[in-house]
Amino acid sequence: MEGKRLRWAVWAGLAVSLWLVGCASQPVTVTPQPVLLRIVAADAYGPLVETVVSAYHEARPWVQVETEVFNRAVGEERLRAGAAELGIFAGPEPEGLWSVPFAADGVAVIAHPTVPVENLTLAELREVFRGRIGDWPDGTPIQVVSREEGSGTRALFEETVMEGSEVTLTALVVVDSRWMLETVSSTPGAIGYVAYGRLEGSVRLLSVEGVLPTPSTLHNYPLRYSVLLTAPTEPTGEARAFAQWLLSPEGQAEVLRRLAPPLEE
């Protein structure tokens, strides 16, 4: 009888020991608390934001990212008012806000597919948009298409091309990149501009000073600029994690599907 009791005690002790070891070896899984991150972007970068946000959510599925798209002037107002933690805009760097370049882009000059021109100099482009050149070489009247006041793309175009001159009063004015692409593609003789990263549809892409914008040529393109990640102050928490991811090889792989690496200082 004593032998049976001893064997039972040994087996019971061994079972408890194995149970304790098994419990100790199980990893503790901690589910992160849901986090909300708000991003405001210039309309030129709506498609880019969708791409990077989708990839970021795959990497950090507990993060819900809400995005809003406006022109740059409205986007900066939203950011300064605290309606978003981060902004994505075309350069130059905004005053009073934290920013870091994460890509390079350029103002692409686009025309109706039948326009018989492949290249314009900056001087020629300026005269076309001033209304001083009114017809294409085949006699087709030129229809200038420009962006609305407050557009970051317009500001960059006017700073680089117009040099203080006014765009012709006969220009059609559109309020976003999609409308610019649709108007230029459907209006014979039309010429306009859009961020290269937003380029799509049946428009003719023109060279400027002999350089056709592509991801491999943007660093030498006359209308190049930096794309900025912006915040009211240096980011913390999830905004900081997003900024670090966007600048990491994983984030840059998503960005470079559309744009070029950041410009060198």
Score class of each variant (00 low, 15 high):
residue 181 L to N: 08
residue 183 T to F: 14
residue 119 N to L: 02
residue 111 A to P: 06
residue 205 L to P: 10
residue 111 A to K: 03
residue 113 P to S: 11
residue 159 E to F: 05
residue 89 F to Q: 01
residue 86 L to D: 10
residue 154 R to P: 03
residue 82 G to N: 12
residue 159 E to S: 11
residue 91 G to H: 11
residue 150 G to R: 10
residue 193 Y to N: 08
residue 93 E to K: 15
residue 195 A to M: 06
residue 86 L to R: 08
residue 75 G to M: 07
residue 71 N to I: 14
residue 189 G to A: 13
residue 201 G to D: 00
residue 169 L to H: 10
residue 142 I to S: 03
residue 161 V to I: 11
residue 195 A to C: 08
residue 145 V to N: 06
residue 205 L to W: 10
residue 121 T to E: 01
residue 148 E to Q: 13
residue 208 V to M: 07
residue 79 L to M: 11
residue 144 V to C: 06
residue 128 V to M: 05
residue 187 T to E: 02
residue 77 E to L: 15
residue 169 L to E: 07
residue 204 R to W: 12
residue 215 P to L: 09
residue 181 L to P: 01
residue 164 G to M: 12
residue 164 G to W: 13
residue 136 W to Y: 09
residue 188 P to Y: 14
residue 200 E to T: 04
residue 98 W to P: 04
residue 109 V to W: 04
residue 70 F to Q: 13
residue 113 P to Q: 13
residue 68 E to I: 11
residue 142 I to V: 15
residue 110 I to G: 05
residue 124 E to Y: 00
residue 165 S to M: 01
residue 112 H to R: 08
residue 177 S to Y: 07
residue 190 A to Q: 02
residue 210 G to R: 00
residue 146 S to A: 13
residue 108 A to T: 12
residue 108 A to L: 05
residue 149 E to I: 09
residue 168 T to C: 10
residue 74 V to D: 02
residue 161 V to G: 00
residue 77 E to S: 15
residue 208 V to G: 05
residue 127 E to H: 13
residue 186 S to T: 14
residue 151 S to Y: 15
residue 120 L to I: 07
residue 123 A to P: 00
residue 111 A to S: 13
residue 150 G to T: 13
residue 187 T to N: 04
residue 79 L to E: 06
residue 196 Y to T: 06
residue 122 L to A: 01
residue 160 T to Y: 12
residue 211 V to W: 05
residue 179 W to S: 12
residue 155 A to W: 09
residue 130 R to Y: 07
residue 122 L to C: 01
residue 156 L to Q: 14
residue 115 V to P: 01
residue 124 E to M: 06
residue 171 A to H: 08
residue 93 E to I: 09
residue 109 V to R: 01
residue 187 T to Y: 04
residue 209 E to T: 02
residue 130 R to I: 01
residue 198 R to L: 06
residue 179 W to I: 14
residue 209 E to A: 06
residue 204 R to K: 15
residue 144 V to H: 03
residue 108 A to W: 02
residue 150 G to L: 10
residue 100 V to Y: 11
residue 191 I to Y: 04
residue 78 R to E: 00
residue 200 E to P: 00
residue 155 A to P: 02
residue 167 V to C: 03
residue 116 P to V: 00
residue 181 L to G: 09
residue 154 R to C: 05
residue 175 V to R: 14
residue 149 E to M: 09
residue 184 V to L: 13
residue 111 A to G: 14
residue 87 G to H: 06
residue 101 P to D: 06
residue 111 A to Q: 08
residue 98 W to S: 05
residue 215 P to V: 10
residue 149 E to W: 09
residue 174 V to T: 05
residue 194 V to H: 01
residue 92 P to E: 02
residue 166 E to Q: 07
residue 106 G to W: 01
residue 75 G to A: 14
residue 195 A to L: 09
residue 159 E to T: 05
residue 92 P to A: 03
residue 195 A to N: 08
residue 135 D to I: 02
residue 115 V to T: 13
residue 79 L to F: 10
residue 138 D to H: 02
residue 82 G to R: 11
residue 88 I to Q: 04
residue 85 E to W: 03
residue 189 G to V: 06
residue 74 V to M: 11
